[in-house]
Design a protein around this nucleic acid. Structure first.
Lengths: 182, 182
DNA sequence: ACCTGAACACCGTTCAAGT
DNA sequence: ACCTGAACACCGTTCAAGT
């Protein structure tokens, strides 16, 4: 099987799940493909763009909520979908957060909620959607990091149900401030 | 002058401003102090704890707003103060965000707004304060990253006034959803 | 066109040995 | 106690050379 961008992305996802973002190196990806590290650069310009591609892969799993839902409900369901996608992969939240900060990746995660907010009459749908996005990412990064620290036995305290509850509350608070007519 | 933890933190801040977080290495800090890299480990357990100390230094500049302000106003002023502190140092936002995700650092940034929210009758002051915090950090990380990309000429578009406006709007939206009585 | 082999310029961290 | 020197086990990226 010849090397290809798709194969590299696939191998990258495998390394991510098996070793985590901190141990995802170009050399390790190359090893998994039975190839020299330099060979990757024929298909991918650099590590950052590979990470952006992996981020896009994580975000591909985010579902679009039912159009019939009221704006507030729609946003809450969307936020839960993003959270689920981020937590589904090891270090998914951190991966997506850093790619997003750099403006890389082909997926514009804020676009769907911005559209829904505009429909609901929010006066600044783009700024509001980005606010929601940062809320989601920050909470998920912290939750995922803490969950891993507990798995490693570094820290004892981590209540998954409480984290889910905090997330729902935070989203509800922002939505309450954002959606005028419900 | 003998090596000390304080001197290492100081040198770290100098490297941060001069080279940025990505180029802040233990070896570079050691070089700036005219010392071998290994010597640092007599005063600091590892790089992560040095970064946490630098993060605390950045957060020491956050002022406590006037107690007389109404809750909504107080929170907006506090958020502006955090933003100013993060943007005052190169990569300040990213530094603080990553230390906070790992639960390192001695400063509990969410405590002051949590207290103010509790006073204002918010039913979940801790969760709400953390939501505000993640909003602030996410927006500031993105803003600071984008501003640097523009300085490097990598990307043309970055409107500082618009970023400040988006920040104020995002904070106002969350505060609107969080503060019941004003 | 695509990949290897080897190099360049780095990392964080450890540790025997010196003072 | 505190620091040096040197090592260990890595990095991302480039590039002449091969096929």
């Amino acid at each position: 099987m010849a090397l290809s961008r798709a194969a590299i992305v696939d191998a990258g996802l495998g390394i991510l799940d098996a070793y985590g973002l901190g141990d995802l190196s170009m050399r390790r990806v190359a090893d998994a493909l039975g190839v020299q590290a330099g060979a990757l650069y024929y298909h991918v310009p650099n590590k950052q763009s590979l990470l952006a591609a992996l981020s896009d892969e994580v975000l591909a799993e985010v579902p679009e909520p039912d159009q019939g839902l009221a704006a507030g409900e729609w946003l809450a369901v969307w936020a839960d979908g993003v959270r689920a996608a981020l937590l589904a992969r090891r270090d998914g939240a951190e991966l997506v957060a850093s790619s997003l900060a750099l403006g890389l990746g082909g997926v514009d995660l804020a676009a769907p909620p911005a559209r829904r907010l505009a429909d609901a009459g929010n006066p600044r749908p783009d700024a509001t959607a980005r606010a929601l996005l940062h809320l989601i990412l920050g909470l998920c990064v912290t939750e995922q990091t803490r969950a891993q620290l507990r798995e490693l036995g570094v820290v004892a305290e981590f209540d998954e149900a409480a984290a889910r509850d905090d997330f729902a509350w935070a989203v509800a608070t922002l939505v309450r401030g954002a959606v005028l007519d419900g």
